[in-house]
Design a protein around this nucleic acid. Sequence first.
DNA 1: ATTTATTTTTAGACAAGTCTAAAAATAATA
DNA 2: TATTATTTTTAGACTTGTCTAAAAATAAAT
Lengths: 218, 218
Amino acid sequence: MNSQSEEDYLKAIYHLEMDYDSISTNSVADYLNMKPSSVTDMLKKLADKKYINYQKYKGSSLTKKGKLIALSIIRKHRLWETFLVDKLGFGWDQVHLIAEQLEHIKSEELIENLDDFLGNPKYDPHGDPIPNKEGKIEKMNQKLLVELKIQQEGIITGVKKGTASLLSYLDKEKIKLGDSIKVIEVLEFDGTFIVEINNRKLTFSEKICQNLLLETYD
Amino acid sequence: MNSQSEEDYLKAIYHLEMDYDSISTNSVADYLNMKPSSVTDMLKKLADKKYINYQKYKGSSLTKKGKLIALSIIRKHRLWETFLVDKLGFGWDQVHLIAEQLEHIKSEELIENLDDFLGNPKYDPHGDPIPNKEGKIEKMNQKLLVELKIQQEGIITGVKKGTASLLSYLDKEKIKLGDSIKVIEVLEFDGTFIVEINNRKLTFSEKICQNLLLETYD
DNA sequence: ATTTATTTTTAGACAAGTCTAAAAATAATA
DNA sequence: TATTATTTTTAGACTTGTCTAAAAATAAAT
């Protein structure tokens, strides 16, 4: 049985591996708001358990075993977030901290029953894919709307940092994270995008398109 | 913020206070499967926090503050048990260990939303009353069926220790914990009880009545 | 009312997970 | 490449919650 702390580290390394090739001790420390010396200790422990490949001064990477554990925690996190939003009426921006706690509850059966209860969702309220029981997760590509070609589709997953005002605009337009978006036309003159969301045609300025994050499957 | 351990101790003392007048260090140790020396340490800590009245060698009792915390944990425990049984399809005998974990999740809003989602239940799947947000809990009297008078009612809450076979009998008769039971008639000859459960008349031998636990409101 | 048994507390140790401060290794720069 | 800066590790300390073993207090019994 793994401790909550161990699980947090494995999850952190998993997320960091999405964005960077080699995972430094300091990057883990930053991610978890911990001191590098504490991280070194835990990395050794995780290496002893064969959850990571760790070489002094050289960085770390998850082993197959460690990756499976990380994915099972992410699965739990995303299923609980789905529960909190779909069933308990939380907003998608309120659920992270609660799910951080719930993801550590130990019970295989609990999470499989929860999965069924939620209708075996494929994506969580933020539009992120939910790994299956075996640790399989859909590969997604993070893109900006402005990068999409005509007729291409994606799922809205967020906005770039520092553009909270865009969020409230989307909210006003009744556009939620997880909504599907398709490019219909791009005006050459000013880069305006004409897109379709929820069967509605909408016009987005180039600036909006440069700040709207999507995930695509290609 | 209280630790999981502190919450476990407070809950233990609360439960022990239901059954005994004065709470000894050893009884807490037995209840929690811990060594008395460990309990002494924690009792001091809880006393420092004004959660219990503790006097060396004299025993402990919850303060008002401590009792409120214990009741809030019990509220969470029983709401989660209700969720597990009503929504996720667990049996009432499978949920205790999972609820022991869930009860420590920290979020006021979570538990109030869960309460609403479940339809503000008054009793958990074992028939125990759920304290409200303010820590009010319905007072119940634990009785054996054999102690009830004619026309008196109660809720089935369990069986005496060592009578698991009675449980399977009840199960076969489609009688569940939480079902309401009413005494219709008692045969003087052999102490047989004729009772009504779920609008069905049933006959219980005196032995059954001596082992069936109820809660009554009188 | 002594002695014996039981309960409770104290004292000291240990594991997990964190920290600070200093040393060692690696990377960057002049 | 020698020096400086940065990163990472080591060493030692602290906290929480547990344990064992021994001492002290209380309760039971002869």
